[in-house]
Design a protein around this nucleic acid. Structure first.
Length: 316
DNA sequence: AATCGCGCCAACCGCTCATAC
DNA sequence: AGTATGAGCGGTTGGCGCGAT
């Protein structure tokens, strides 16, 4: 299969949905050279896709151990909400806490969640792009997070990939999916959010899926439990909020509340070895069924054990 | 049965950062 | 030190499926 050319009619850059054959070519490329040198996929004439496009396809769809087609669990939702409040729209960073999830997954999840919330609350969707582009620096202020301890992220998966790609040219065993585990760090969370979520969860008639929420037992400043009629919201809105405790919304509500304190939750740490994370750090996310279409989940873990060394450019 | 609205998701674009030369 | 190139990240868009009407 390697070497098969998949050009479009014009021989130009191909865009749009990927075909199975293209995936196979890309997978073969990664098998041979590792998940790097994306631009060489095109320069070698294997695919008429940009390196960028190839990388994206691999990262988002073809990588082993992705939870393709699996909805976010309640626990994952909680993690995203918390981390978005903590990190802002640093999707790649947030994704490192969610084994099997990509930054795109997290981004899409958050986006649709925001849309739905905005629609139900009859508020315009918060400006997402340019205004939030500064969010990386501004979000902390926006969220009033005074004493956040950044989790010990050695780097994002992509960063790992990139740096290792450039520093270690003789072995590909160490790419993100198989990088050594980092010790499970204690993720520090904003107790404002946790308090509110804990309180809000009390409003729920049905518990959040099968995940008991430990926060109410945590010893941090208590906020008087919210009563449904404390909020000037429609019943529908309240229902959504209880289902979707939104970090921003809750923060807005909580803006008058206590300064954050440090609490620690034992959820997934940044993880660069999804398989182990799913088993250990995934915290029950294994319950998520593997979807039939996620064939890549069946990739053998030694898939890259026989990767050939990358030839030098002069050999191309 | 047709249409509409919504949610989800894949993929692209533009920008930034890192590295090589 | 400056420039070119590649890679990564975040935002946006468009298509598809599905349920409601």
């Amino acid at each position: 299969m390697a070497g098969k050319r998949l050009y479009d009619e014009m021989g130009e850059i191909k865009k749009g949905p990927w075909k199975v054959e293209e995936d196979e070519v890309l997978i073969n490329h990664v098998k041979k050279y590792g998940p790097r040198d994306w631009s060489s996929v095109r320069s070698k004439g294997l695919l008429q896709r940009t390196g960028k496009s190839c990388r994206l396809r691999w990262v988002n769809k073809l990588r082993p151990n992705l939870k393709n087609g699996v909805k976010f669990s309640a626990e994952e939702e909680r993690v995203v909400i918390e981390l978005q409040g903590q990190f802002g729209n640093k999707w790649a960073r947030i994704a490192t806490y969610l084994p099997g999830r990509t930054d795109n997954d997290v981004k899409n999840f958050w986006s649709s969640r925001q849309k739905r919330l905005a629609r139900i609350l009859h508020t315009p969707t918060p400006p997402s792009s340019k205004s939030q582009k500064k969010s990386g620096k501004q979000v902390a202020a926006l969220h009033q997070v005074p004493t956040l301890e950044a989790p010990k992220l050695s780097s994002s998966t992509e960063e790992e990939s990139s740096s290792k790609a450039q520093s270690c040219s003789s072995s590909y065993i160490d790419y993100p999916e198989t990088i050594k585990m980092v010790p499970l760090p204690e993720l520090v969370l904003n107790s404002n959010l946790l308090s509110f979520e804990a309180n809000i969860l009390q409003l729920e008639s049905s518990p959040v899926e099968n995940k008991p929420c430990p926060e109410p037992q945590l010893d941090f400043p208590q906020i008087a439990p919210l009563q449904a009629d404390d909020l000037p919201l429609t019943l529908e809105s309240q229902e959504v909020i209880t289902t979707f405790g939104d970090a921003n919304f809750l923060n807005a509500l909580a803006s008058h509340a206590y300064a954050s304190e440090i609490v620690q939750l034992p959820y997934a740490s940044p993880c660069f070895e999804p398989e182990r994370c799913c088993q250990n750090g995934g915290q029950g996310e294994d319950e998520n069924p593997v979807t039939p279409d996620s064939f890549i989940d069946d990739f053998p873990m030694d898939m890259f054990d026989h990767i050939e060394p990358l030839p030098s450019p002069s050999e191309w």
